[in-house]
Design a protein around this nucleic acid. Structure first.
Lengths: 219, 219
DNA sequence: GTCTATAACTTGATAGAC
DNA sequence: GTCTATCAAGTTATAGAC
């Protein structure tokens, strides 16, 4: 049965999301999926390939939708460039909306947020499957942010990435139960995130000096 | 020799920062520190206690300085409440400045950013050692942000935490060498971060509705 | 395609000599 | 305080029967 494959993918997605990649053993996955250990090596070659399969299953469709939404934004804005808020929403919606549409995909966002910090894993996977999307959106963002140099935009996008990842994480002030089972990335969180980020991107440049917020000790 | 203790702490700090907690074995730590495996269990009880010791060594002084800087801010602002930027700088400076002052502490910030996402580890440690600082600063932040409810502030602080953690991570567009050895949290990054976050905190409430950035497909 | 069995190795932790 | 030696458990991965 190729249904076994799906069961493994589902279990792996959930466990990777909850515990991270290195902390999740293949044995815990097969136990959760109710399949055999050898099956995981039959369908996927290795643990790392399994992670890649998990990511691709969700990221593939999501990225296709991102490109579609970007085109829609450009159309809607006619000759003008789309607003920053619209671009952010188009980029983030496929991730956030998955929660409400299909209960299955809930865990995936947490996986991304979780694996995001595990560094050495995603670079290989990300560059292979997110390249086109990132290039298209970067171009659009730069047009919507004419006051930023490409370098400054890269830095702010870097900061924004962290905020997005954090938005996909269950807030620590929710108790364990809620953290584990409730979908946290709702429409409200998405809108909050868009407002937060767009304000950050819109800040004028040259806060290198003169931002008179010195408060330091003598030392 | 109690110098062994320090060697272990230094090595653990560096390796935890680079690879994360679960991915770092005690054996790799003793190899890097040039000490014996048993020594690590003699000086610290367990791997988890070692992590806690690593965190406390840096976070203790940093948190004391945070409280000091907060008082200085309040003094400088006289009857009025300190500005958001000054509060952010007071809170973030002890972390960021450590890079420039002592080369030793460079790794620690990355450790925090790295462990930050490993979830179940920091809650126990953080609540034990950051409680007072968080309470004092939350109070000050809420006064500086009268347009936000406590709940809304908590959400935005959640997002901001992610951005801070990301600022402490080496940007992926720097090549491997630079990622590994160059201090990335410079004064410039700190100022960028302060500008980015303060703008996000200042956004008016009620972007729950009416933020007319709909760009969704029919679906 | 799925299973059992097992190889080959790494992990955190400890006992006990010195 | 520091060492060697070792334990018990857990890890990924594979070979081979069915």
């Amino acid at each position: 049965m190729t249904e076994t494959r799906e069961r493994v993918l589902d279990a792996a997605e959930r466990l990777f999301a909850e515990r991270g990649y290195t902390a999740t053993s293949l044995r815990s996955i097969v136990a959760s999926a109710g399949v055999n250990l050898a099956a995981i090596h039959y369908h996927f070659h290795s643990k790392e390939a399994l992670l890649e399969a998990v990511v691709i299953r969700r990221a593939g469709p999501a990225n296709r939708e991102r490109l579609l939404l970007l085109e829609k934004c450009k159309m809607a804005a006619r000759s003008k460039t789309p607003t920053l808020e619209k671009l952010l929403e188009a980029f983030l919606t496929p991730t956030f909306r998955a929660v409400q549409d299909s209960g299955e995909a809930v865990q995936f966002m947490r996986l991304v947020a979780r694996i995001h910090a595990e560094g050495y894993l995603l670079p290989a996977i990300a560059k292979a499957h997110f390249g086109e999307v990132m290039a298209s959106y970067t171009e659009a963002f730069l047009k919507a942010l004419p006051h930023l140099t490409a370098d400054e935009f890269r830095w702010r996008a870097h900061l924004a990435t962290g905020a997005v990842a954090q938005a996909l994480r269950p807030p620590e002030w929710l108790d364990g139960e809620a953290q584990a089972y409730k979908p946290i990335a709702t429409e409200a969180v998405l809108q909050r995130l868009i407002g937060f980020l767009s304000a950050g991107f819109r800040v004028p440049m040259k806060n290198t000096k003169s931002r008179g917020a010195k408060c330091s000790v003598a030392s």
